[in-house]
Amino acid sequence: MYNILCIITPGDNKDTIQYLFTALRALVETYQTQAYEKKVHVSAPPIPVLQMSPREAFYSDTEVIPLKEASGRVSAESIMVYPPGIPIFIPGEIISDESLRYIEANVAAGLPVQGLEDESLKTIHVIKEMQAIR
């Protein structure tokens, strides 16, 4: 198990909160001998530059290219590390070398990077570059 997110809302009461605590205690007792601490150091991603609005990117022509070759291109997809779920970049933002290194660092650290249509993280949809008319 990697993470657990527990949310207590105004709809909960003493009984439901106690039920949660009981379940968490049971998890600790069950997996305590298998647990180990894994320190992961990953920095915050750079703030990307918005080239076009996400709406404009959504309606633009796109092409699929290798993710490793996407630096300088405008993304047509979102990608994030979850948790926390904050996008590294969204459609319309310029993909930077720093963002690609951030993605690689998170993958190497074993963190779940997701959001691309290609779950293997090998390719990405980017805005098709316009060619000059001759």
Rank of each mutant, 00 (worst) to 15 (best):
I103L: 01
I7V: 15
F21T: 12
I124N: 01
A108S: 14
Y19E: 15
V81E: 12
I47M: 06
I124C: 05
P46G: 04
Q51E: 15
S43Q: 08
T9W: 05
M80I: 05
K128M: 07
I7C: 11
Y19N: 13
P48M: 03
V64N: 08
E56Y: 00
E29Q: 15
I65R: 00
M80R: 12
R55Y: 12
P45M: 01
E98L: 09
P83S: 06
Q131A: 11
P66H: 09
N106I: 00
V42L: 14
V113K: 08
Y59I: 13
A105E: 15
F89V: 07
A70N: 02
Q114D: 08
P83D: 10
A23P: 08
V113A: 05
K68D: 14
S78H: 05
V107S: 01
E98V: 05
D97Y: 07
P84C: 03
D97E: 15
H41C: 07
I88Q: 06
A26T: 15
P112G: 02
K122F: 04
A44R: 11
E104S: 13
A35G: 12
R101Y: 11
L5E: 14
Q114S: 13
D61Y: 01
T16A: 01
E98I: 04
I4D: 13
E117W: 07
T30D: 04
E37R: 11
F21Q: 14
A44Q: 11
D118A: 06
Q131S: 12
E104W: 01
P112N: 15
A44E: 15
Y2E: 14
G11N: 09
Q32E: 13
Q131T: 12
Y36K: 14
G115P: 02
E69N: 10
D61T: 10
G11H: 02
A26N: 14
P48I: 03
A105K: 15
L116S: 05
F89I: 06
E119L: 07
V74R: 08
P46Q: 02
Y82T: 15
A35Y: 13
K39C: 00
R73S: 14
P83T: 05
G85C: 04
P48T: 04
V107A: 03
A26V: 10
P112V: 09
P91S: 04
S78Y: 07
S60F: 00
V113E: 10
T123V: 02
T30F: 00
G92Y: 03
A23M: 13
N3Q: 10
K39R: 11
D12P: 08
Y19Q: 15
A44D: 13
V107T: 07
V49F: 11
T62C: 07
F21G: 14
D12I: 01
S53E: 00
I90M: 13
P46A: 09
K122Y: 06
I95Q: 02
A23T: 13
A132S: 14
V74N: 10
Y2L: 11
F58E: 15
V113M: 09
E77V: 01
L116Q: 00
A105P: 05
P112Q: 11
A108C: 06
L24I: 12
R134C: 07
E56H: 00
P66M: 06
I8L: 07
P54C: 00
T16G: 03
Q32R: 12
P84Y: 03
F89T: 08
V126H: 06
E129P: 01
Y36R: 15
I86K: 10
P48W: 06
G11T: 08
P10F: 00
